[in-house]
C-alpha cells in the first residue's frame, strides 16, 4: 500500500479519503476496496519516514483536514520502486503443502484432495467470469486484472494436473 499511495501523491497532493477514491476509480470492482483506516495508518508511517508531509487545511464548520504531499525523499523512494524489476510470483502454495503432507498422516488421500481442489478452482474461475461480465468494458485496468487472475488460475489448474499424474 505504501508505494501506490506515494505514486498517487506524486500526481497531486490529496487527503486520505481522496486517495481511497482514486484507488477505487482506477482499479474498479476487480480490486478489493482499500480500508480508510489502513490508508491513514500507512500515511502516518510514510510521514514518520519523511516520505510525505501533511498540512492542515482549515474547513468552515468542520475539523481541519490533513492534505498530504510528497517530499523529495518520497519521490526518490518512488523512483527506486518504479526502476527496480518486480519479483515474479512465488510458488508458496498452501494446497501443495496439504497435498504432500496430509497423506503421510493418513488424514486424506491425494486423489480426493486434488479432485476437490480442481472443482474449487473451477468455481473460482466461474466467479471471475461473472466478475468480468459485470465489469465496465471501458475500465481496461480492471479487465486486465481479471484476465491476469484467470491466467494464474489456469496455471494452478495445469499444475494440479501434473501433481495428480506424478504423485499417484
Amino acid at each position: 500500500m505504501r508505494l501506490p499511495l506515494l505514486a498517487l501523491l506524486a500526481k497531486e497532493p490529496a487527503h486520505g479519503y481522496e486517495l481511497k477514491q482514486a484507488l477505487e476509480v482506477t482499479f474498479g470492482s476487480a480490486y478489493p476496496s482499500p480500508n480508510i483506516g489502513q490508508i491513514y495508518v500507512t500515511l502516518g508511517r510514510l510521514e514518520k519516514d519523511g516520505f510525505v508531509r501533511a498540512v492542515d487545511v482549515e474547513q468552515s464548520n468542520r475539523p481541519n483536514k490533513k492534505v498530504y504531499y510528497l517530499t523529495a525523499a518520497g519521490r526518490e523512494a518512488l523512483e527506486a520502486w518504479v526502476d527496480e524489476p518486480t519479483e515474479g510470483p512465488r510458488v508458496r502454495d498452501e494446497f501443495f503443502m496439504k497435498l504432500v503432507l496430509a497423506p503421510l498422516t493418513g488424514i486424506s488421500d491425494r486423489m480426493a484432495l486434488v479432485n476437490r481442489q480442481r472443482r474449487h478452482y473451477l468455481s473460482l474461475m466461474r466467479d471471475l467470469d461473472e466478475l468480468a461480465e459485470r465489469t465496465d468494458p471501458g475500465n481496461r485496468v480492471a479487465r486486465l486484472l481479471i484476465e491476469g487472475a484467470m491466467l494464474h488460475l489456469q496455471a494452478d489448474l495445469d499444475w494440479l494436473e501434473r501433481c495428480q499424474e506424478d504423485l499417484n
Binding site: 470492482s29 476487480a30 480490486y31 459485470r134 481479471i146 491476469g148 487472475a149 494464474h152
Partner: peptide, 11 residues
Amino acid sequence: GTAGDIVELRG
C-alpha cells in the same frame, strides 16, 4: 466479501 477478494487471492 466482494468479488475483488478472488483477485487479491490470485494476485
